[in-house]
Simulated scan of single mutants.
Amino acid sequence: MPVSDELSFKEMCACFDVTPRTLRYYEYIELLQPRKEGRSRFYSAREVARMTLILRGRKFGFSLEEIRQWLELYDRKGDREQYEVWIGMANQQLDVLANQKADIEAAIDDLRQLRDETVEILQNMD
């Protein structure tokens, strides 16, 4: 990839709407490995793709360690095993999110009921 196709540190932060601290942390925990030139960092298409997957994984509720292990699979084993592991991780996370959704829906129902009871109490005070 020609150097001109790489993103600078500042461009990478802007592209993904992340703070410099976040980007440095992802590099520190070896989720990203930009090319370094002195103090400057340059992010290739590979690093941009990895960042996309990292942020998508965070959105879905995966830990950074889970994401790191999954990304390492590709480096060691290739696409097929990575996809198989991803399916298992996705199924497990879908269960977690479904449980969280049920808990949130129950909390919303309880809060509505309490609010409605309170409204009724106020109306009976008049």
Rank of each mutant, 00 (worst) to 15 (best):
L71H: 07
V96C: 08
R50A: 13
R115D: 12
L55V: 04
T52R: 14
T19N: 03
R76E: 14
Q33H: 11
C15Q: 15
R24L: 12
R39N: 10
S40M: 09
R50H: 07
A14L: 11
N124Q: 11
E66S: 12
Y28T: 05
R58G: 02
L23V: 04
E66M: 12
E105V: 01
T22S: 10
K59L: 14
S4C: 04
D5M: 10
A98V: 01
T118D: 01
R24S: 01
R56F: 04
G88S: 13
I29S: 07
V85Q: 13
A45C: 01
E30R: 14
L55R: 15
Q92H: 11
P34M: 02
I87G: 01
F9D: 06
L53E: 13
M125C: 11
R112S: 11
Q82D: 01
A107I: 03
D17F: 08
L32F: 05
D126Y: 04
D75T: 06
E66T: 14
K59G: 01
Q33P: 00
R24G: 01
E47D: 14
D95H: 09
S4M: 04
D95Q: 12
R68I: 01
L32N: 09
D79L: 12
E120S: 13
N91Q: 13
G78W: 10
L7Q: 10
L64S: 12
I121D: 02
E105L: 12
N124E: 14
F9T: 02
D110V: 00
P34N: 04
A49F: 09
Y74R: 05
V85S: 09
E6P: 00
R76T: 08
R115M: 12
A107S: 14
L97I: 10
K10W: 00
D75H: 13
E47I: 01
V119Q: 09
E11I: 00
E11W: 01
V3A: 15
E11L: 03
L32G: 10
Y28L: 06
Q69F: 05
C13A: 09
Q100P: 04
R58H: 03
N91T: 07
E6V: 00
N99R: 15
D75S: 11
F60V: 03
L122C: 11
A45I: 03
M89R: 13
Y83K: 10
D95Y: 03
D110R: 07
I29Q: 04
F62G: 06
W70I: 05
D103L: 10
N91E: 13
Y28A: 04
I87Y: 03
A102S: 12
E66N: 10
V85P: 00
I108E: 15
R39Y: 09
T19Y: 07
I67T: 07
E47L: 04
A98G: 07
K101F: 01
I67G: 08
E37M: 10
A107M: 15
R24N: 07
R115I: 13
P34L: 03
I108L: 15
L23Y: 06
S63P: 06
L71A: 09
E47S: 07
S40H: 14
T118A: 09
D79R: 05
Q100W: 04
R76V: 07
R39M: 05
E120K: 14
L122T: 01
Y43G: 08
